[in-house]
Design a protein around this nucleic acid. Structure first.
Lengths: 346, 346
DNA sequence: ACGTTATCAGAAAGCGCTTTCAGAAACCGC
DNA sequence: GCGGTTTCTGAAAGCGCTTTCTGATAACGT
């Protein structure tokens, strides 16, 4: 009767230890397996912990041992399939290692990226991973370094997806430039000479690298890209739709449209269709990323494949590798052109 | 010179306080704004904190104040657009409230759901949110309750997306049953009488509710669903593809296929196409969820719309509302049929 | 001018754990 | 059988903060 309504209080290590008739030190040792403990005591502690439903307080553990099981992940936009796929790879890598993942989404605002680094520092994250699209801006870079440097000096680990100009950290680098170039060559091989491009914000290295690679490869083939056939839009499905609509309104002179990301390509496909154009009969369309859904579009989308989940696993591996930061390392991924039915000879 | 290489040590509250010439207590009060402090001291503390780049240790804060800024989210599968969309809503709700989100993905294994609850308890999460598809299994329910109950008694908050039979917690409930029924009626109205269904694991309430609602509505109209036209597959794109392929091999006798989720419908669409069937001319196809991509398929998919992001925000609101758990509450969402071009009269 | 109340700052306890440190007990060889 | 190891356990310090509690100082009324 009484025992049944006994307040469970807070079952702390102290309670377990008392119950087992040992000191908290011994109980801690048993529970963590740090040191041999006489079998009899071991059993008593284990039994007590189990019986009382003991759950250690991770804050106390972290504070006392100055270490944590948590990695922080800052993601450009979790609701975008590209970033979600990478985050999913990070998630998998984390659970393999028994780590917990604190996930923050900046919803496309680079300044929040910096704020979150600070927050994750406060949380004593063992590593901070940035899943971004790169951002080139002096003030931003300075502020980010000001957050990252003390963290690194304090033993924190940092790794980043996508190219950043001045951040001295481990990097997972999608082959944006080479991929853009390879795509251009593939499209040239199909016979296209007139291109239009739907880009995202130029301040993102992801955008400028892809566009740069694409344009260079065209130039090398003696084909140039009319400035009025390059339209900038938001980095989203609707951004792609709007950019493509704008292009169509102004008069599309291209036989092939390159959307700088698959997500934008999805919007572009809708815009083309709404405008009565058939893909690829009237115009070819290509994207970049190979997010899972694009093979199920009709027509399936030609794109540049990136192993997104693998990149997520790699960014974790890079951050956690020993010894830390011999010198910031770069791991390159992807860049293979996947030709599908959305492109055809003009 | 010397000052430049001075070890930054760890900048703790103590260091800031000493530097400002006040006690740690005062520094704490200033930084948290808990109590009025003389302006002069205030300024000194703030200046010192800023100068030294002070970042509070969240573990110490949590330990001392017995409260945390972290909510734990356990997600069935982060790489599935349905769950990702809900998680994104949760994310938004978290950042609005200044909370941090610890995200775990069970990768479709219900037993890991229980393990993660325990882990998040250890992390002293202020709330635990389960984004699942429901699971009906006595042993599982018992084990889950055994984790949840002590957590709730200790002041923890819990809320769940999807119906669970015995869990006494706040629930965000998609209108699966009503939605399934409404979809059936809409398809009947189009003139269909012969249906096939691609389902997921029956142990998931999401599956059984949708299927139950669908079948009941058909029965009420005097139409029955041949058992051999119901095929169970994994809850994924490939599961949908395989289930649909199996159905086609065995001989499809239906004029309309209902896939229990949009994700499975995407796979089904691919299977139908690979089999040379046109949608909706040869067979109509409907899904459930209205994940963002399905309006961009061709044909756009008929489905039952659920406000996924909103549901994510709601599950957070439910968990955090005051006072806690007057009695577990249920918030219902969605269930509107969205007719698109993937369905047509037979 | 005196007692009374309101403000503000510091000392110190304590959150729940880990980890030296040191002592007790058991072991060894010769 | 005794010094010297080797094991094992407990006492206690301390991780970095918050929060009483207490004392000092200022402000107030009559």
């Amino acid at each position: 009767m009484v025992s049944e309504r006994a307040a469970p209080a807070h079952v702390t290590l102290e309670v377990v230890a008392r119950y087992a008739g040992v000191s908290p030190a011994t109980a801690s040792r048993v529970l963590n397996g740090t040191t041999r403990v006489r079998d009899e005591l071991r059993e008593r502690v284990l039994a007590a912990a189990d019986l009382l439903g003991y759950i250690p307080n991770a804050h106390a553990q972290a504070l006392a041992s100055a270490s944590s099981q948590v990695v922080g992940v800052i993601c450009h936009d979790v609701s975008d399939p590209y970033f979600a796929a990478i985050a999913s790879g990070v998630m998998r890598a984390a659970s393999e290692r028994g780590l917990l993942m604190m996930l923050a989404s900046t919803f496309r605002d680079p300044s929040r990226e910096i704020a979150y680094v600070s927050t994750l520092r406060a949380q004593q994250a063992r590593a901070i991973l940035l899943i971004s699209s790169g951002f080139q801006d002096r003030a931003w870079e300075r502020a980010m370094s000001a957050e990252l440097d003390p963290y690194l000096r304090g033993g924190g680990r940092v790794a980043v997806v996508s190219r950043h100009r001045t951040l001295r950290v481990d990097t997972v680098l999608p082959e944006n430039r080479a991929g853009g170039a390879a795509l251009a060559r593939a499209l040239l091989d199909l016979g296209h000479r007139d291109f239009a491009v739907l880009t995202g914000p130029r301040a993102l290295t992801t955008v400028s690298d892809r566009l740069g690679g694409f344009r260079d490869a065209l130039a090398r083939a003696g084909v140039d890209l009319a400035p009025d056939q390059i339209v900038e839009g938001a980095f989203t499905r609707d951004g792609g739709y709007d950019a493509c609509s704008g292009l169509l309104q102004r008069g599309l002179r291209a036989t092939c449209v390159f959307a700088i990301t698959d997500v934008m390509a999805i919007g572009a496909l809708a815009a083309l269709r709404d405008h009565g154009l058939r893909v690829p009969e009237d115009v070819s369309l290509a994207g970049f990323d190979d997010i899972p859904i694009v093979r199920d579009l009709s027509p399936p989308l030609t794109t540049v494949a990136l192993p997104l989940a693998e990149m997520g696993e790699a960014v974790m591996a890079l951050a956690l590798r020993e010894p830390p930061h011999r010198r910031s390392r770069v791991a390159r991924f992807g860049g293979e052109v996947v030709l599908r039915a959305s492109t055809a000879p003009p």
